[in-house]
Nucleic acid binder design. Structure first.
Lengths: 215, 215
DNA sequence: AGGCGTATATTCGTGCACGGATATATAAAT
DNA sequence: ATTTATATATCCGTGCACGAATATACGCCT
């Protein structure tokens, strides 16, 4: 049942969804994604857009319907979704909604290596991050409120609410982390030790706990 | 002050951090990343590892120290970090910790296009997702508890706590979303309308609200 | 002694992502 | 009337990500 893997670029999913609505040409897809603010949730690069359309074409998920020319502007090719494309759109959505995908946020990577920064510097940077996050959450919450006030259907805002929920969780986490570091978390003497003799300290830590304290 | 952009692959950051500890060869870096469970937070592909080392070498952030051969096994090149590399490691960490980076989680993309699924199906899938998340959060929380119980220093677990915090936020969000849909959220008749006449309904929604209800 | 799974260690080819170039049309500004 | 900026529309080259291939060594079972 599980066929070939889906295209790797989520922009391809957006293309399928738009062509599911009606046939259109690539540039128009870009414009609509922007108008509807889907750009915030699905990375849009015009270069990738055309690459992705080539890929969907090769896989038989979309087809060129007509090639129009308006005066001397570049040709526009109008695409439409195929039955196979409709299936792919559906299966892909099922996978994405039904199963959490393993992802690698950059901040998680940074936290992973946090000991390479001296504790005082880390603290200052975390405070800065917290400020930015607070600004962003406030702005996002404001936008959501003002749009809801206009009776815009919530169904078309879920992704923004999701983003806000995650951002707030990060805000709480960072605030808590700051608080903990301020009260000697780490523990701090060990953290400082890493900076006095990095290799020895790291060895000690991971040797003492068998190298793999997980599981 | 802000020099050339950092390498795009966070694995390069991990390489710098490891070589900051002591010189070593690529394969060993992979092994250590696995032992320390950093693999969960920083995507490790051996193919990418060698690519990334090539890149760091070209940028002058690391240098080949010696090339050893053990019997007839393939040659191993041992690398060390350069002063420029130490600077890069530091600057990169400053950027990552200090400023939230715009990212594009797949689930957010899916939520963006949620209307393409009929409400009943979406509901079933969200319930399935919730179950998976509950399992994962329970497992993660257990691991953290057992490791802390062994007195393993919290400093080397932050990234896991962060992951857990975000996962829990998603769990709450999904649970809430399910509850809302169950009680007619969407609104449901509009959502069903999208499936009876997709184009007309979409046009109506975005025309009524000026196409851009944000901001 | 022979076979087989696993660990060691790296290279290569393919395919995708994206910045930037290209070219024309239209609206605004001077 | 002429420059300037912005919108329309697509293409291409470079560089990066990763799966798969390669090759040797070692421990274990029979």
């Amino acid at each position: 049942m599980t066929s070939r893997p889906h295209p790797s670029n989520p922009l391809a999913l957006a293309v399928l969804a738009l062509l599911f609505e009606r046939p259109m040409h690539p540039y128009e897809m870009g414009v609509i994604l922007k108008q509807r603010h889907k750009e915030e949730s699905i990375k849009l690069r015009y270069g990738s857009l055309y690459t992705v359309i080539e890929l969907l074409l090769a896989r038989g998920f979309i087809a060129a319907r007509e090639t129009a020319r308006d005066g001397k502007r570049p040709e526009r090719t109008i695409y439409e979704i195929t039955p196979a494309g409709r299936d792919e759109l559906h299966d892909w959505m099922v996978d994405l909604v039904g199963e959490p995908a393993k992802e690698y946020p950059q901040f998680e990577a940074a936290l992973c290596l946090l000991p390479v920064l001296p504790p005082d510097e880390a603290l200052a940077l975390l405070r800065q991050r917290l400020k930015r996050i607070e600004q962003t959450t406030a702005a996002l919450a404001g936008e959501i409120a003002s749009i809801s006030a206009q009776n815009f259907p919530a169904l078309f805002l879920v992704e923004t609410e999701y983003r806000l929920a995650l951002l707030r969780a990060e805000q709480v986490f960072v605030a808590e982390l700051i608080r903990r570091i301020e009260s000697g978390w780490g523990p701090l003497d060990l953290w400082r030790g890493v900076h006095e003799d990095r290799e020895a300290t790291m060895n000690k830590i991971y040797r003492e706990f068998g190298g793999a304290p997980m599981a």
